[in-house]
Design a binder for these strands. Structure first.
Ligand SMILES: [Mn+2]
Ligand SMILES: [Mn+2]
Ligand SMILES: [Zn+2]
Ligand SMILES: [Zn+2]
Lengths: 141, 141
DNA sequence: CTTGGAATTGGAATTATTCCAAAGAGCGAA
DNA sequence: TTCGCTCTTTGGAATAATTCCAATTCCAAG
């Protein structure tokens, strides 16, 4: 009974990049883990303020950027709407519900990922793939 | 010897949507067809000005939006960089070369598309999928 | 204790895009 | 034809997410 992917220690990951674990970074990250609804920077800002009332929006942007660099968080974009942030580290696609605006994680089996990468002709060396669905969701859960 | 997908007449498509074929719309569309390098609105603006020196940037945005509505053109976004425009109507993914910034069309076989759609759990009804690769390209052609 | 680099902060700046109100065009009815 | 209505274009102002900047503040090492 292994714990489900022991979440990489924030402090550890930051250290690996030669960065410090600050209260701001810790709270921003914990807010993302607590409610995984792909919030925007503004939404993260609002949630973090509850714990750190004096944090600035600029800092939230800085922290999010840092977390993305450390690969603890993914930045997700739909068209030109504000960037959303996702702490799910498993390979997954995103489903954007056009009615509600909600975003869902869709697990991507390695086999499918492989299949998708096979469409690339010789000479194309992909470092990442991104798959985004758009439509209507009525999730079972 | 059928012509390769007789490009839907712009005039026809516009009429279908109850819209008029204007010189501005025609030139914007022809510019997209002429050089399929996924230009931004600003780039389209520059190219169109050669033929219609008095066109405004607002009109270019309007025309592009119209062409997207008519489904003659796809809007393509990479992160938060300016939207790019693509007149390729076949199902295809995009490959974004991180070095050069160039964008390549990658044909998507129906089988792969089907496979990808199969990752959706019950309750998720997708109206479209978007696949984007990022990496380094050394295209054969 | 110092002190130098890292991090945060508030506010200004940037920039792609949208909005707006006024002027121009095209077309069918009279 | 002319009129009137609607669609379209246009230039400039406004918007909004994000980035930039310069001034503190923080902190860990010496
Ligand atoms: Mn939406
Ligand atoms: Mn790029
Ligand atoms: Zn996600
Ligand atoms: Zn394309």
């Amino acid at each position: 009974m292994t714990p489900p992917l022991p979440p990489e220690s924030l402090t550890q990951r930051l250290a690996d990049s030669g960065l410090r674990a600050t209260p701001q970074r810790e709270v921003v990250y914990s807010v993302l883990l607590r409610k995984r609804d792909h919030p925007t920077a503004e939404e993260v800002f609002a949630r973090v303020k509850a714990e750190l009332p004096t944090i600035s929006l600029a800092t939230v942007y800085n922290c999010l950027e840092t977390l993305v660099q450390c690969e603890l968080v993914r930045a997700v974009n739909f068209e030109r709407s504000p960037t959303r942030y996702c702490p799910n580290l498993r390979p997954h696609a995103h489903f954007h519900d056009e009615q509600t605006g909600r975003t869902y994680d869709i697990d991507l089996p390695p086999a499918v990922l492989a299949e998708v990468n096979h469409v690339l002709p010789a000479g194309f060396d992909a470092s990442s793939v991104e798959i985004t669905f758009r439509g209507q969701a009525r999730p079972a859960s």
